Amino acid sequence: MVDFEVVELPETDHVDVGDTAPDFTRPLVNDEYWEDVSLSDLTADGPVCLVFHPMDGAFPSTYVWNEIRDRGWGDSLTVVGVSISTPYEHKSFVAERGMDYRLFSDPSNAVGREYGIANPMDGMTGIEEPRPAVFLLDSDRRVAYAWVASEWPDFPDYDEVEDALEALV
């Protein structure tokens, strides 16, 4: 059993349904390589599921990505992640999980701050990561669905996300 305390997170003014999601360019990583890609490049090809997650190796990241992989969300739209992990860490994480999904590397958490979901890491002064969050975006980057963690650890209602995903695609 994992030993951890559930921590209530403060309210946040995050990107929400109806908003236009901020565009960004970061290294987008798969199990072989990475390259700078913008979010708008991805949405130009259709809807995108943007998943913010804790650093690679943290049990919530492993759990979330295993669930997304097992549910096959990428069968109907582009699914990408964002975390503070480096491209090297992402490359290993993607390969170890057998994921067909790519992950944006954002070590400074600038994207998390821009989305209003920065989460200071307990016991690590000056270090933050994004809260767990899921945003479904249409081809204009308009947010069709938003879920942001209200406690740590917290996980999306996967069935609710799938319902929103089906309505979007």
Rank of each mutant, 00 (worst) to 15 (best):
M55Q: 13
P156A: 15
V82R: 10
M99E: 10
A167Q: 09
D70L: 05
V64A: 03
G98I: 05
E32P: 01
F59N: 08
P22I: 04
T86R: 07
L9W: 13
D3Q: 10
E128Y: 07
M55R: 09
Y115C: 08
V111I: 15
E11P: 00
V134L: 06
W73A: 14
D19K: 00
F104W: 13
D159R: 12
R26Q: 13
G123M: 07
F104I: 07
D13H: 09
V169C: 10
G126T: 08
Y158G: 14
Y101S: 03
V111F: 08
T20V: 12
G57V: 03
F59G: 00
E89M: 11
S105A: 14
Y33G: 06
S40W: 02
Y63C: 10
R113G: 11
G112K: 07
I68V: 06
D70E: 08
L28D: 12
G116T: 04
D56R: 01
R97I: 01
S139F: 00
D13L: 09
I84D: 02
D138G: 11
R102P: 00
W73F: 15
V161H: 07
E160D: 15
R26M: 12
T86Y: 07
P120L: 15
D31F: 05
G123Q: 09
E129H: 06
I68T: 01
N109I: 05
K91Y: 02
V7D: 10
N30W: 02
D122Y: 04
E128N: 09
E32W: 03
V7M: 12
N30H: 00
V64D: 02
Y33S: 15
D31S: 06
F24P: 00
L39T: 02
R97M: 13
L165W: 08
L168K: 06
N30R: 06
W65R: 09
A146C: 05
V80T: 03
H14P: 11
Y88R: 12
P120I: 15
V161A: 07
A167T: 09
